[in-house]
């Protein structure tokens, strides 16, 4: 028994030593530079998975490692602390983070709305037999959003405004996307704002879509972006030029090959094939539509998400 304990002890100490000693290597044996990206396992990041598969990063000497962080909560802190070289986040979160003084700048656009009413990658859903006909009817009712004071409630408020309702009387509750189908089914909330794949799952359950909140905000709305820390970009501007070029190529490829996007989704998510076939894919332009982000930023000021006019140029960084 003493020997068992001794072995356990030695093993633990050794393992502890290796655990603490393992630092992320900057270069691997093939001469490629290892770059780590913090992403969420959702439809939106399909282009980077495709880009890695197609060798767009490798041909620029980059070994892109995709770290899938479930809720996305780890991405911004991870990029700030240097754990990730780049990350993926929605624009509102980035504007808020930048407004709090976090030195983040965008690299490329992430996803953009399809711009089609009733056929977007996210929307507001109600029970089929509900009396709610459009977003204006949401006045005084409860709507579920995955985050409060973020892109969901801000754009849904805009839908209410566009439909002639009073957005301040809509009550938002925080609910994770995966819980929304059940919450809508059981009538816990009057409406939910959901994105793919849950938008399709909700549609397939027979619920009704009443508004496309991204489209209502701006027909070319840039919803999310890839970003990195200023410090990391200043350290290695050439690397980040290459990363950005590879991202752009990946997005163009994804935009031109929707079937490839659907195929790749099944490799890193567990979305049911029946849902993957039905998904409304976002558009993947690599340029952020600055006018749409300006609209979003103005709404953030109107709704009180930020105190002062956000400095968007700072968010885009020095590059022009």
């Amino acid at each position: 028994m003493r020997r068992t304990l001794a072995a356990l002890t030695t093993g633990a100490v050794l393992l502890a030593a290796t655990a603490c000693g393992s630092q992320e290597a900057d270069s691997d044996s093939g001469g490629l530079t290892t770059v780590t990206a913090g992403v969420i396992p959702i439809v939106d990041v399909a282009p980077v998975y495709l880009g890695v598969e197609q060798g767009f990063f490798e041909e620029r000497g980059i070994d892109l490692r995709l770290e899938s962080s479930s809720g996305g909560a780890a991405i911004v802190p991870g990029v700030i602390s240097g754990e990730f070289d780049l990350g993926f986040s929605n624009i509102v979160s980035l504007i808020v983070a930048r407004g709090q003084g976090l030195p983040l700048t965008t690299l490329t656009n992430g996803v953009t709305t399809t711009g089609e009413q009733g056929a977007d990658m996210g929307g507001v859903f109600v029970q089929d037999d509900s009396s709610i006909q459009d977003a204006g009817d949401l006045e005084g009712l409860t709507v579920a959003s995955n985050n409060l004071k973020n892109i969901g409630d801000t754009t849904v408020r805009q839908s209410v405004r566009v439909a002639g309702g009073d957005p301040s009387s809509v009550k938002f509750v925080e609910l994770p996307f995966p819980d929304m189908p059940a919450a809508l089914d059981s009538g816990q909330v009057d409406a939910v704002w959901a994105v793919e794949p849950f938008a399709s799952i909700i549609r397939q359950a027979g619920h009704r879509e009443i508004a496309s909140n991204f489209v209502d905000t701006h027909p070319e709305l840039s919803v999310a972006a890839y970003f990195a820390s200023e410090q990391r970009q200043a350290e290695d501007p050439e690397l980040f030029a290459d990363v950005t070029a590879a991202l752009e190529e990946s997005m163009a490829y994804a935009q031109d090959n929707p079937d490839e996007v659907r195929r790749t989704i099944s490799t890193y998510t567990e979305i049911d094939q029946g849902v993957i076939d039905e998904l409304v894919l976002p558009r993947f332009p690599s340029e952020i539509n600055r006018e749409s982000v300006r609209t979003l930023a103005d709404l953030m000021v109107t709704d009180g998400l930020v105190d002062s006019e956000p400095d968007l140029d700072a968010l885009y960084g020095a590059k022009e």
Partner: peptide, 24 residues
């Protein structure tokens, strides 16, 4: 694994959850 996303069963649960794969 579930919340942070470090590798393991918890992360698999999180991926399945965000994919709406209920039986998984």
């Amino acid at each position: 694994q579930l919340i942070i996303g470090s590798p393991g069963i918890g992360q698999e649960i999180a991926v399945a959850q965000s994919s709406g794969a209920v039986s998984s």
